[in-house]
Simulated scan of single mutants.
Amino acid sequence: MKNAVIVQAKRTPIGKKGGMLKDVEPHQLAAPLLRHVAANVTRHLDEVILGNVVGPGGNIARFAALEAGLPLSVSGMTIDRQCSAGLEAIRTACLFIRAGAGTCYIAGGVESASTSPFPKRAQFSPAAIGDPDMVEAAENVARHYRLTRDVQDAYAIRSYELSWDAYTKGFYSEEVLPFGEFRSDEVFQKKRDMARLVARAKPLVDGDGTVTAANSCGIQDGAAAVVVMEEQLATELGMRAMLRFADSEVSGIHPNYPGMSPIPAIQALLARNGLTMEDIDLIEINEAFASKMIACATELGIPYVKLNVSGGALTTGHPYGASGAILVTRLFYEVQRRQDVNYVLAAIGSAGGIGLAVLFEVIR
């Protein structure tokens, strides 16, 4: 099989729902990003594959590619696997290259919760099985693992502190392509006393609940895209590849516990490749809820020193279809700042109880 490698990665600034990107349609948000990452590979592009969850439909990947001025021959495909859609887009491009279906793809995701035409969420599973809202599902995970409010709040503060540290060191600016006047994530426009906000936050489900707005992600607008290329072609073009696709796994669990869905995916992925958690140097898991992160770290034995080392969605937010691609973008830049990394992993859980994990080998 041919090897698929990632040679470019960028994301937009992330804005709050109803915030700085509130008037930007998904195709408009993705187009400058596509134009930028395609700059040196346009004549080799086979397709644009984007994840998107909340619409408006119409094959946003193709729409955005046309808006970006890419050649008419570059087709587009939009994927909805809920929160894992952006990571699935990257995985799909890698698998296409492995299978010999193409040699160069732009893959990622875009989400504009602000302009979504849908007044309420879709149904994720039959009512007879269970179709909880995501906050209720996060509370289910917290109850299953007997996670206290204090433990979840402590993880949220960790995420916030790591994110601010990465931002002040300029790490986030490396991965962000400015969008017009906006050059950084909206959350960083004003630093907050996170410890006070966490302490004051009220439970979202019931009086004795542990999940709050402060230990949950925000709903955001944003996009991310990577260039996935066949390794030999990348070498011929003089492109610097950072990550080589190694393997991936998708798992399904009970829809009442979607936050736990990355666990079996990661376990199966490591077992099939003869690896243990000790072999993985960096892990990015989407921080939808603190309860999810603690559950995954506990069950999988992930040391916090390897997990979301520059913060995550609990601080910057969760633009559904883009979040999985943001994880890979983060890894793309994190490995360039380190010398001692060989394997990295991105994983995400989705509504309906689906977990997706992708393993990459770091190229030196």
Rank of each mutant, 00 (worst) to 15 (best):
K2T: 14
V5I: 13
V5E: 11
V7E: 06
P13D: 08
M20I: 15
M20K: 14
L29C: 12
A31D: 02
L33Y: 08
L33D: 13
L34N: 10
H36P: 02
L45R: 00
E47D: 15
G57D: 15
F63A: 12
L66I: 14
A68D: 04
S73L: 10
R81D: 13
A85L: 05
E88I: 12
A93I: 11
I97S: 13
A99Q: 15
E111W: 11
E111I: 09
Q123R: 10
P126W: 09
I129V: 14
T148L: 09
V151F: 00
Q152T: 07
Y155T: 03
Y155M: 08
A156P: 03
I157R: 08
E161Q: 13
S163C: 04
A166P: 02
T168M: 03
K169W: 04
Y172F: 15
G180C: 08
E186G: 12
K191M: 01
R192V: 05
A195T: 03
A195V: 11
L197Q: 15
V198D: 00
V198W: 02
V198N: 08
A199V: 04
R200P: 12
V211M: 03
A213H: 02
S216E: 12
D221N: 10
G222D: 04
A225S: 13
V228D: 02
Q232V: 12
Q232C: 07
L237W: 02
A241M: 06
A246E: 14
D247I: 14
D247Q: 12
V250R: 06
I253F: 01
H254W: 00
Y257T: 12
M260Y: 06
I263F: 05
P264D: 10
I266N: 05
Q267W: 05
E278R: 15
D279P: 08
I283S: 05
F289W: 07
K292Y: 05
T298W: 04
T298M: 11
T298V: 00
Y304S: 05
V305R: 11
T316Y: 14
H318M: 01
L327D: 01
T329Q: 07
F332W: 07
R337V: 05
D340E: 15
V344F: 01
A347I: 08
I348K: 00
G352N: 02
V358K: 01
R364T: 05
